[in-house]
Design a protein around this nucleic acid. Structure first.
Length: 412
RNA sequence: GCGUCGGUGGUGGAGUGGUCAAUCACAAGAGACUGUAAAUCUCUCGCCUCCGGGCUUCGAAGGUUCGAAUCCUUCCCGGCGCA
């Protein structure tokens, strides 16, 4: 058996502008890009077996460092042969670094603040402004060296640093791992965004050094892991460009684009970054999964995407259709004996009616979440696959126009 | 028939002389969800509303009282026990 190589990325076709289609090769198989990655935070895509995940066309599973560190513990996952083998997923894998939990358990804890701000210009409302002195009550506290978390499970205290995140991610064993970063709140002011970004850059360097050090300690022949640096900078053009320049100059295997955005300007912000990042390395847009955002990400040069939205919404009763989202818990679907989406080729749509799935949701049956997740994941995986085909055939613009018109044009 | 316990919103069930009728849960209706604190969360849930509030209700009818879902009487309905 030949020693596995780190990832390689080959661009097959470029669009006018930044978008491209390619092939990303990992130790566990290649990924046709652009691609939508399924999220399996705790080494399980919630409600689905890995066979179901594969059957719906998913190419990659992404797990989370913080969650697997808390339970069952990264050493158990290491001894199981890595999280992919542990969960019986033999395709490509990724792990997030825990950087998102700096945000979700810190600045965003107890609030309704999300990654994307809906504010168009200027003032941010609806969220506390973040600063290092105002973290009382949160489950994450940041300092220069790292982050102290309180476990969301039992309140116990845990410490993450870039070095620790790398150690854990090496134990988890994914093909692609991320540098430890700070995902900021869109409610944070410019000065804080700059401060956090500069700290993320220092953490990126430390992540890279720690990763290299860990790689040298591997037994020969073992798979190598690719490390992706994470660009930050909030919604500010100068910060995003600076972050792309600084990280682009470091020798990462690829890049993640993370953090908070202005909802109306996310695609442009991604473009600012990708115009600067090295073209020949893969780019992962972290945590984005709304159809229009995926179009924006793809045409602005992102290759892979992950998002919890399809599985979370799938479990909560909201399903994608070509005509927009529907909430199957609504009374109007109780006697609707048509498929969720008549053009969808997923297992759910081929075998069940809206009325049946509505019944499952109303009676809180577990199968509801499974069927909903299969459909929503298939919808997005297929959508991004269609984008790839459209790039290859030069029809991306018409795909985008037609899809968005039908999806957002009316609501059934 | 006698005895006994009970009858409060869609349901279960709080409240047992004034400060409050309707805590709480469930059901129901709607909304949210973007590197998963999430099979979760938020709002509505007697009627009307210029969102300040206004009005109606506690099986029925009387009565006691300044004041009754709450006490008394009769009736209706239900559970249980005894015939």
């Amino acid at each position: 058996m030949t020693p596995a190589k780190p990832i390689s990325f080959k661009i097959e076709k470029k669009m006018n502008g930044l978008g491209r289609a390619g092939i990303l090769t990992t130790p566990h198989g290649s990924i046709n890009t652009p691609a939508f990655v399924t999220v399996g935070t705790k080494a399980t895509v919630k409600a689905l077996t890995p066979e179901q995940v594969a059957d719906l066309g998913a190419q990659v599973v992404l797990a989370n460092t913080y969650h697997l560190y808390l339970e069952p513990g990264d050493e158990i996952v290491r001894d199981a042969g890595g999280f992919g083998k542990f969960m019986n997923w033999y395709g490509p894998t990724m792990t997030d670094s825990g950087g998102f939990q700096v945000f979700s358990l810190g600045a965003a804890f107890g609030s309704k603040v999300g990654k994307l701000s809906k504010v168009t210009q200027g003032e941010i409302t609806g969220g506390d402004e973040i600063d290092l002195e105002d973290q009382a009550g949160k489950l994450a506290k940041i300092d220069e060296d790292g982050v102290t978390f309180k476990s969301y499970k039992d309140g116990s205290e845990h410490r993450f640093t870039p070095e620790r995140s790398m150690e854990i991610q090496h134990n988890l064993g994914a093909d692609m791992i991320f540098a430890f970063d700070e995902c900021t709140s869109p409610a944070a002011p410019y000065e804080y965004q700059r401060e956090a970004m500069e700290r993320t850059h220092r953490w990126a360097k430390r992540s890279l050094d720690a990763h290299r050090h860990l790689e040298t300690r591997r037994p020969s022949g073992e798979n190598r892991q690719a490390l992706l640096g994470v660009v930050q900078g909030g919604r500010h053009k100068d910060l995003r460009e600076e972050s792309a320049r600084v990280l682009g100059a470091m020798d990462f295997d690829g890049y993640g684009i993370g953090g908070s955005f202005d909802k109306n300007d996310m695609a442009n912000a991604v473009g600012w970054v990708n115009a600067i990042l090295p073209e020949n390395k893969p780019r992962h847009l972290l945590g984005i999964g709304e159809p229009e955002d995926l179009f924006g990400g793809v045409e602005n040069g992102c290759d892979i995407f992950d998002c919890v939205a399809p599985t979370r919404m799938g479990r909560n009763g909201t399903l994608h259709t070509k005509d927009g989202k529907i909430n199957l818990r609504n009374v109007k679907f109780t006697r609707d004996f048509t498929p969720v989406d008549s053009e969808c080729d997923c297992y759910t749509c081929k075998n069940y009616t809206r009325a049946y799935i509505a019944h499952l949701f109303r009676s809180n049956e577990m199968l509801a979440g499974t069927l909903g997740s299969i459909h929503n994941l298939r919808f997005l995986v297929s959508l991004v696959d269609q984008m790839r085909e459209a790039i290859l055939s030069g029809t991306f613009e018409s795909l985008k126009t037609n899809f968005l018109k039908q999806y957002y044009g009316k609501n059934i």
